[in-house]
Amino acid sequence: MSHVASIAELFGGGLAAVWYAGSREGAGDVAIYFSVQSSDDGRWSPARAIVTRASAARELRRYIKKVGNPVLFSDAEGRLWIIYVTVSIGGWSGSSLNVTMSEDEGRTWTRSRRLTLSPFFNLSELVKNAPVALSDGGWAVPIYHEFIGRFPEMLWLEHRGEDIVATKSRMSAGWYGYQPALTPIDAGRALALLRDDDAPRTVSMARSEDAGHTWSAPERIDLPNPDSGLDAIRLTDGRLLLAFNDSPDGRENLRLAMSVDEGRTWSRIATLVEERGGDFSYPFLIQARGGDVHLVYTWQRKAIKHIVFNPAWLDERWSRTTR
């Protein structure tokens, strides 16, 4: 089993990816794996376990039942960061978030630090999608809560000296979608696209006009969602790109949709994979400095796939769709 991959561009060129893998989801042998892709020959290095149940228990000084959902990102100083989930009691709704950081492109990692984000036994804080860098050097991380209520939240991270300062704000309450994909429009405005587990099974979208501090109530958009993770990014030319399962009841395909009007309308531009009975899920998108778009996703819960497409291909797909 391999699941929940994320990818980041390295400061000196090349890419790095993390995901979790083991005999089955939540099993004791599940670990978070790390691999780098050389910018020279494009080969991915052999996967290396960087967080195991035992290492997390040692570093966090407590019992850890399972690890999961790692999200990798790089900062302007060339450091790599991973936010990942640990569970001590119960299932995924018993999750807490932890942070670790590398200053040598993933060769070594700092001791993990637990973030306290919930007043109720610090339960049920999870992450799936990439953060957005803030102008003050901090990060806006889209996270979500799923104990009793299931709702999206914003985690605000700052790195002050040796300390990591974490605070949190609510995106919406109750049961209005989760696993937000955060997409900035400009310095003040942003969109969040949300996974949905409720009828009629469509993607939901919330808007912020104050840099993510407050959000509109999520509204459904005209794209289905089979209660599955999705991701969206803003391309350097301003268009929005969404990777999602285009079905209300299955993960048999993975498609790209594009919006040129800040998310008001979306057009499907490409099918990346489609297979009857298949399971293609949890896409994660980035646009590298050179303009190429990188997508990683879970392939049949057995492997992590990496797809690259350049802006010219996106332009060609977009013009074919709108012709």
């Binding site: 919930s118 007043p119 109720f120 104990f147 209520g149 109750g174």
Partner: peptide, 20 residues
């Protein structure tokens, strides 16, 4: 006052008031 709201009963999250 804290737990029902912090667990999602409304869009107001009093837990936010404790950060600063």
């Amino acid at each position: 006052a804290l737990y029902p709201l912090a667990l999602g009963l409304s869009s107001v999250d009093p837990y936010e008031w404790g950060w600063r």
